[in-house]
């Protein structure tokens, strides 16, 4: 049975030559790993993770933006609706005002025409009355003068007739 160690060796022995081998191999191994093999892996993983993180962030931002846009749209739509309603209401009110104004005007016109007509009738009536009165008095005087020609002078007769007519007027 050939055990390896120079002094025979046991379980707990520390063998310097072997340790030197292990140290050299491990140091070479670690340098290779540290300098050449692990950095590209670290870099690739970091880049991938960053890219995923960026994508997620930008996706979130895009969603937020889209939400904002749709919210804005909704708001604009609502505002437009409100504005339209307002315009309609205003138009209705304007129409109402216009209508009532027209009615008022028509009524006033009608009133005015009526009152004008009444005034004209009254005027005609006054004039006709005056004319009629003059005519009647003339006729009465003529008739009376023809009947009682010489007895009465013209002035006293006229006075008598006028008083008679005004009595007549008052009786009416």
């Amino acid at each position: 049975m050939h055990y390896f160690l120079a002094g025979g060796g046991g379980l707990l022995s520390f063998n310097t030559g072997f340790a030197i081998w292990v140290l050299i191999s491990t140091v070479v191994f670690l340098v290779l790993m540290q300098k050449f093999l692990v950095p590209p892996i670290m870099k690739a993983l970091d880049e991938r993770e960053n890219r995923i993180k960026d994508s997620l962030e930008s996706a979130e931002k895009a969603i937020a933006k889209a939400e904002q846009i749709s919210k804005d749209n909704d708001k604009a739509l609502k505002e437009a609706e409100i504005a339209a309603q307002k315009i309609r209401k205003e138009a209705l009110e304007d129409a109402e005002v216009l209508r009532s104004e027209k009615i008022e005007k028509a009524r006033n016109d009608a009133d005015k025409i009526l009152s004008d007509a009444k005034a004209a009738i009254e005027q005609e009536k006054q004039r006709a009355m005056a004319e009629l009165r003059k005519e009647v008095s003339d006729l009465a005087i003529e008739a009376a003068s023809r009947i009682i020609d010489a007895e009465l002078d013209k002035t006293r007769n006229k006075k008598l007739v006028d008083s008679f007519i005004s009595d007549l007027n008052n009786k009416n």
Partner: peptide, 25 residues
């Protein structure tokens, strides 16, 4: 060979450094 299974030089001088390739290595 020594009795414990180790090696010594024939003139009895101890090995000062053993850099042999071993199974664990």
């Amino acid at each position: 060979e020594t009795e414990e299974g180790g090696l010594v030089r024939s003139d009895g001088a101890e090995i000062s450094l053993d850099m042999s390739i071993t199974s664990h290595l």
